[in-house]
Amino acid sequence: MKQPGDTKFLITTVFKKIAETVLLLIILSLLVFALMYIAPGDPAEKRLTSQGTAITKEVLEAERARLGLMRPFLVRYGEWLFGIIRGDFGISFKDDMPVAPKLAAGLHKTLILSTASLILSLLVSYPLAIWSAFRKGRVSDHIVRVLSFIGNSMPNFLISVLLMYVLCIHFRLFPVIADGSPTSLILPVLSLSIPMSGRFIRQMRSEFIDQLNEDYVTGMRMRGVKERYVAVNIIRNSLGHILTIVGLQVGTLMGGSVVIETIFRWPGLGKLVMDSINSRDYPVIMGFVIIMGTIYIVLNQLTDVSYHVLDPRV
């Protein structure tokens, strides 16, 4: 039986997780590279087309040689991977400029948008979920449930279009295009937060209700323990699950940010990748998946470890 505070066990777990994370990152990069490798069309050709150069056989051959496309897959993969580790994400097909600075600038903007949305969603949903769970079946619970239900059923592109229509065009409260100012952040953040809060409230509420149905809660209540302490206990015991819920929602948030950034022209990674998809600028798309994937992997490995710490039974 595992003992509490078994630091040796914990350290082993952490080291395992680190090894696992590295392995996952390597596989992620391999799959991303393979995806681009088998993508329809030849990079040299794509590059020339996206730059608008007329394609002749000689030009194509020269371009292929210059890009080193004749070398084996693994050599090219290795080169690309070590480039990324050094922070070199390759050269854009579109304008021959390094991709890394563009990605960095986009990531910065995306982090602002996503973090703001995540914080807002958590601030709204966590207390509401607890409140609602404790008042299960009452009017206030129903109101929270209906609201979270509607939020959960709204695609964020729809919310943003509707918000834009009502607030920008009808009432002229906000600028239509996000220019980076704090006011222009409001609509994108709302568009991301509304559906995310809906999902959070639903998932957290059901987690809290599960906890409230545990034997120990009945036991506490039968001993006349105050609800205040019951709340302390369910909050403590649900932490692991809640972190997992949040970690998984970050993935949805990343996808949502692509849509929202495109709609509001927020100069983040999402808008960058959509522009790059339209111009078939593969190095940017690869960089995007690598960055988002890495953040997601690391974050969820962290929540996994904290789950072990928080629930020693696992």
Binding site: E20, L24, I27, L28, L31, V32, L35, M36, A39, P40, V250, G251, T252, M254, G255, G256, V258, V273, M274, I277, Y282, I285, F288, V289, M292, G293, Y296, I297, N300
Partner: peptide, 19 residues
């Protein structure tokens, strides 16, 4: 885990974009 380590919509956007 590997599939899950790709955030779904991010993968979907990249894959659909390439396809």
């Amino acid at each position: 885990d590997i599939f899950l380590s790709f955030p779904q919509m991010v993968v979907a956007i990249a894959v659909a974009g390439i396809l």
